[in-house]
């Protein structure tokens, strides 16, 4: 058997793939967080709950309405995105004049409510969700066995990240968004409806989180706590990458997923803490984050 530093290459590749999949979730989630933070100056603590909701809505669509995975991939982000729009209009927009910390606290409260409601309704044992027919099974690549669904998740997450990047860097709407992030008052003076832009951004960020949730649904058991478990890691990812650049957060997300996977192979005891350790080291060496600008 081929080995790499005493580890069978099959096992190594398997863990790397798992790491890449986790990294895909980190990337999509930190992308949404960075978008929302850029325009609203709010850290969206409910991001994890919105991720969890995405997975649950997909599961509910299948269980109660027989709507399949492909449609759920569209509908669930739409539902959660609209829910986000509602939250922004009803609650968040009251807080923009206050200290940024209040936004964090409000969304933390919302996360508790959502998590609690789903726990009340479905318990914490978790629901299972089968991958769609087309993506079941896998292919043998010679050096490893690739389950099709896992490959699909990595590819589609990467595509979404690139599409969001292109949308923000290359389109007119993206240009407005960037301008409003730099100087909202000036953009507003030019006649752009900035509050609408803000509402849309929050909704879009929530929808992205839900999209990541649907992608994750067939991989893990769908459970009310899945959101809070991942969001704290994503916070560390965001601190490591810095929220200054879109591609930076995508790169950091995937990279840290891989590092986590490698740690599982070589030193499994540290796999749950390695990202936090990296965060501490980055804080010591480059406090603004790898891709961040100093204030």
């Amino acid at each position: 058997m081929v080995t790499f530093f005493g580890v069978p290459i099959q096992a190594l590749m398997g863990q790397l793939l798992l790491g890449l999949i986790n990294g895909a979730s980190y990337a999509v989630l930190s992308l949404g967080l960075a978008l929302i933070f850029g325009l609203l100056n709010i850290i969206n603590f409910a991001h994890g709950a919105q991720y969890m909701m995405g997975a649950f809505v997909a599961w509910m669509l299948l269980t109660y309405a027989g709507i399949n995975y492909w449609l759920a991939l569209l509908v669930a982000p739409l539902v959660v995105g609209l829910f986000g729009v509602l939250i922004e209009r009803l609650l968040l927009h009251r807080l923009y004049k206050l200290d940024h910390l209040y936004g964090l606290l409000l969304t933390f409260g919302l996360a508790l409510i959502m998590e609690g409601l789903f726990r009340q309704a479905y318990g914490i044992s978790g629901q299972s969700y089968d991958p769609p027919q087309m993506l079941q099974g896998g292919v043998n690549l010679g050096f490893m066995f690739l389950p099709l669904y896992r490959g699909w998740v990595v590819v589609v997450a990467l595509a979404v990240c690139l599409a969001v990047w292109a949308g923000i860097e290359k389109t007119r709407l993206g240009a407005l968004l960037r301008a409003a992030t730099e100087n909202p008052a000036l953009v507003r003076a030019f006649g752009v409806n900035v509050p609408l832009l803000i509402t849309g951004t929050y909704g879009f960020g929530a929808a992205l989180a839900a999209f990541a949730g649907v992608l994750a649904a067939p991989l893990y058991s769908i459970n009310p706590l899945m959101g809070s478990n991942i969001i704290i890691i994503v916070f560390a990812v965001v601190v490591i990458g810095g929220m200054g650049s879109i591609l930076g957060s995508v790169l950091t997300g995937f990279g840290l997923g891989l590092v986590e996977g490698l740690t599982k192979v070589f030193y499994p005891e540290a796999s749950s803490t390695v990202i936090f350790v990296i965060m501490a080291i980055v804080l010591l060496i480059k406090p603004a984050g790898l891709f961040g600008r100093a204030n």
């Binding site: 609650l91 209040y102 409000l106 409260g109 508790l112 998590e115 609690g116 009340q120």
Partner: peptide, 21 residues
């Protein structure tokens, strides 16, 4: 009664932050 503590804590968070800071 299960998860209600979490839900009520969340509601108090939202109320305090929006209404009486």
């Amino acid at each position: 009664i299960g998860a209600w503590v979490t839900i009520i804590q969340g509601i108090i968070f939202v109320l305090v932050v929006t209404l009486f800071r």
